[in-house]
Design a protein around this nucleic acid. Structure first.
Length: 817
RNA sequence: GCCGGGGUGGUGGAACGGUAGACACUGCGGACUUAAAAUCCGCUGCUCGCAAGGGCGUGUGGGUUCGAAUCCCACCCCCGGCACCA
């Protein structure tokens, strides 16, 4: 509109300022946290990156907003600790190294060097003095130490068990690492193999892990953990067994439906159930053996297929339902899972869908014991699983099935036929891996002394660099004579080392503890620092870790607590899950898809500040979504306009400061509240509005000097967490004291932020017909007078008298005719 | 199948039960420029109308309410997790 004489000013050029400030901040140790400082501590943690190669947008998306959050709390006066490290062990690094024919150590540490530079280019306030790398012997030494402590307490044990075997990665996997029957990493179909493996007793903590009351976590994550742990209340009940030559006299089942126990018409054992070979009668032996063999060969995918029809074979044996004395046939079927409950299921076709399907297929009886409300006694066409009245259940007839549950449970306990119990879906954590790039398990096998833990003072058991590490199905360390052959710590005789390594999730269990004293030699953490700084106050990271890292880490923390190492029951008091950032095609970003966005180029082109802000602006952080670069020009324009506002003053003069001050204080309020709720996108929108309003104010003529300075200074302070470089540069150019990142967060004055004029919305029958400017404190009578005087309202109303008027103070008036 | 989360303009997205579409991108028009870029200004949900103004609009269908994107019921679709868990 008006001819604008742009002052001859320097243009915003991120390349000129960003590196300069990064170097200055580093040289000044600006982001080094003094852990002995007495101000209120705030441990802000972002999930550590895996060292798989270059950083891409998938790394920036979680980290840039997290950095803004950490900076925000720092400016609010907290002593913020915001560390970073590298998750360096594990299959992906090892596989990548093998593919390229280089040593995993070299591959990993080269990546770390590159990633460190990339992370610094982000302008994040990471405290690099606290860096921890999980593949360092001084780190994994304490993995081993923890293992020994757990072994001492019986929390680490060894057992031969069927394990998830990935033929691609040539190693076993934890239950949590099998996704739809396939390896989480390489996608190979997982098969079952019997192996001697090390486990952690996470099940011992199942009950406590279900208590989420001591932390503030997003609901979806706690729900996922709850489902994963899968607590079920029920009873274990014994069915009588009277088979010549079989010592055992009962088969124990687990059921959540004791109320249906009179309806049992058959029994199902898992193919792997130990009683199967003993009870099978000679004429059924070959069929049973064939079935067991076929079940063993099945892949997880085949076994899990829901479309599959029920299969099973009769063993020829019978057992007795002690409640009604009925003899029922014992079958084996793979829908009974060996590891869940007791590995045996009582078949109640009338009241369980799976049992119904099984009975239908094999012509087994179906006895109704819970009557549907208007049941006429005719056969069921499907399992009835809803509540009902008990029938055909002896003395329990007539009870509601809900009452029957406890009545039968009590009766079973009285008779000694069973007991109330709780079963979990969660399995113990299998930590052995037959791979090279991990923490060696500190155990020695001696012919004389058996399993012998390596003494603490011999830690770390070092991972040899010169192993032949291509996977063969056996741990590569097994072929390294220098590693394997050792002496028994107990008797001094010849012994062999354990050659498996630990699951890499062991590393991420406690890295945030190590950050506090990464150089500490006398334990995993300096106890004094741990006492002051743990637990983590705010954790941010992806929801993909809901049932792996986040569950393991909670378990591990509770073990560390029981060892007296840390205090409190939970490691992460608050959690925020950002959404997944996807490629422009809406697909998960991956090198193989070719949809990876490299931040380095974007930083070159737009600057780190613009790129950070853009990632925060594209949408709500928790939602993620496809990344498209298109909108970034809006961010560039905003930063450039902010720059121009800050380096060139408007025409100062006698002017009303009220509007300007209201703008400032309203914006402070909005940005502060948005930051508290991780709403970076709307915070940036508020700052954009401020820039737009300030530009208009400058155009409009004379501006009050004090109000202008307050506005610009506040704006820079509000921008500092989002775009640290430009904020620092402009702060300096305006002659303010270094560093902006050490300034206090601005406070808003509610009186100044308040509007003194409102737009009164005038509705007739709920439809907006007019908007009238009115004083903010307008009362109902005045509002009504204004509204009824409106020409629009009169036209809508016609001859009708208003029947009712609804007034929402300061907002709206609705005239109902 | 079960458990979460979500469906709003051409696009990303805003909206304590109270102006739907803030903020931005794109597009269109204009200013500046020899020209372009950059910058600045205006318009930009659909639709009827010359206009004033009206109608329709938040996945679908109902309901509650003076008033619903928001609350309730039923359903459809998308994303994530779990999946024969007895």
């Amino acid at each position: 509109m008006t001819q604008q004489t742009q002052p001859k000013t320097e243009r915003y050029n991120p390349r000129e300022i960003e590196e300069k400030w990064q170097q200055r901040w580093e040289a000044d140790g600006l982001y080094t946290t003094d852990l002995s400082d007495t101000r209120e501590k705030f441990y802000w943690l972002t999930m550590l990156p895996y060292t798989s190669g270059d950083l891409h947008v998938g790394h920036w998306y979680p980290m840039a907003p997290s950095d803004a959050g950490a900076r925000f709390y720092r400016m609010r006066g907290k002593n913020v600790f915001y560390p970073i490290g590298f998750d360096a062990f594990g299959l992906p690094a090892e596989n990548a190294a093998i593919k390229r024919g280089i040593h995993p150590r070299k591959w990993t540490y080269d990546n770390i060097d590159r990633m460190r530079g990339q992370l610094k280019s982000m302008g994040a306030m990471f405290d690099w003095n606290s860096e921890a790398i999980t593949a360092d012997p001084e780190y994994y030494r304490w993995n081993q130490w923890f293992f020994l402590k757990m072994y001492e307490r019986g929390l680490a044990y060894r057992k031969n068990a069927p394990a998830n075997w990935c033929p691609g990665c040539q190693t076993v996997l934890a239950n949590e690492q099998v996704v739809n029957g396939a390896c989480e990493r390489c996608g190979s179909t997982v098969v079952q193999r019997d192996l001697e493996q090390w486990f952690f007793r996470i099940r011992d903590y199942a009950e406590e892990l279900l208590d989420f009351s001591k932390m503030d976590w997003p609901d979806p994550v706690t729900t996922m953990q709850q489902n994963w742990i899968g607590r079920s209340e029920g009873i274990e009940a014994d069915f009588g067994l009277d088979i010549p030559g079989v010592g055992q006299t009962a088969i124990r089942v687990f059921t959540t439906r004791p109320d249906t126990i009179f309806g049992v018409t058959f029994m199902v054992l898992a193919p792997e159930h130990p009683l199967v070979p003993q009870i099978t009668t000679p004429e059924h032996r070959s069929a049973v053996e064939a079935y067991v063999e076929q079940a063993r060969r099945q892949t997880e995918i085949e076994r899990l297929s829901t479309e599959r029809e029920k299969t099973g074979v009769f063993t020829g044996a019978f057992c007795t339902n002690r409640f009604n004395g009925r003899q029922v046939p014992i079958w084996i079927a793979d829908y009974a899972l060996a590891w869940y409950g007791t590995g045996a299921v009582m078949g109640v076709p009338a009241h369980d869908e799976r049992d119904f399907e099984f009975a239908q297929k094999f012509g087994l009886d179906c006895n109704v014991v819970i009557a549907p409300p208007d049941w006429d006694g005719s056969p069921l066409t499907g399992a009835y699983i809803e509540p009902g009245t008990m029938v055909n259940s002896g003395q329990f007839d007539g009870l509601s099935n809900n009452d029957g549950k406890s009545a039968i449970a009590d009766y079973a306990e009285q008779q000694g036929w069973g007991a109330k119990t709780v079963t979990y879906r969660l399995r113990d954590w299998l930590i052995s891996r037959q791979r090279y790039w991990g923490t060696p398990i500190p155990i020695v096998y001696c012919d004389a002394d058996g399993v012998v833990p390596v003494p603490e003072d011999e830690l770390p058991v070092r991972l040899p660099d010169d192993a032949e590490f291509s996977p063969t199905g056996e741990s590569p360390l097994a072929k390294h004579a220098g590693f394997v052959n050792t002496t028994c710590p107990k008797c001094g005789g010849p012994a062999r080392r354990e050659t498996d390594t630990m699951d890499t999730f062991m590393d991420s269990n406690w890295y945030f503890i190590r950050y506090l004293s990464p150089q500490y030699h006398d334990g995993p953490v300096d106890p004094a620092v741990a006492r002051d700084w743990l637990p983590v106050d705010q954790y941010t990271g992806g929801a993909e870790h809901a049932v792996m890292h986040l569950l393991y880490a909670r378990f591990f923390w509770k073990v560390a607590r029981d060892l007296g190492l840390v205090q409190g029951d939970e490691p992460f008091l608050r959690l925020f899950n950002q959404g997944q950032i996807l490629g422009p095609d809406g697909q998960r970003m991956s090198k193989s898809r070719g949809n990876v966005i490299a931040p380095d180029e974007q930083v070159q082109k737009f600057g780190a500040d613009a790129f950070r802000c853009f990632l925060m602006f594209i949408g709500p952080w928790e939602e993620g979504g496809p990344f498209r670069l298109e909108g970034i020009s809006g961010i560039e324009r905003w930063l450039a306009r902010a720059w121009n506002l800050a380096i060139a003053d408007p025409a100062f003069g006698d002017a009303d400061a009220r509007d300007l001050r209201r703008l400032t204080h309203k914006t402070i309020r909005r940005v502060t509240e948005d930051f508290e709720g991780f709403r970076w996108n709307t915070a940036i929108a508020a700052l954009m509005e401020m820039v737009n309003a300030l530009s208009r104010a400058r155009e409009a003529g004379a501006v009050d000097r004090t109000a202008w300075d307050e506005a610009i200074d506040s704006m820079l302070l509000l921008m500092a967490p989002l775009s640290p470089h430009i904020a620092e540069e402009l702060w300096e150019r305006r002659g303010r004291p270094y560093s902006i990142h050490q300034q206090r967060w601005p406070a808003w004055d509610p009186g100044l932020a308040k509007e003194d004029e409102i737009t009164l919305i005038v509705q007739v029958n709920g439809k907006v017909r007019d908007r009238i400017q009115a004083p903010a404190g307008i009362g109902e009578d005045d509002a009504r007078r204004l509204a009824l005087a409106s020409e629009q309202v009169r036209r809508q109303l016609g001859d009708n008298e208003p029947r009712k008027v609804i007034y929402v103070p300061g907002k709206l008036i609705n005239i109902v005719a």
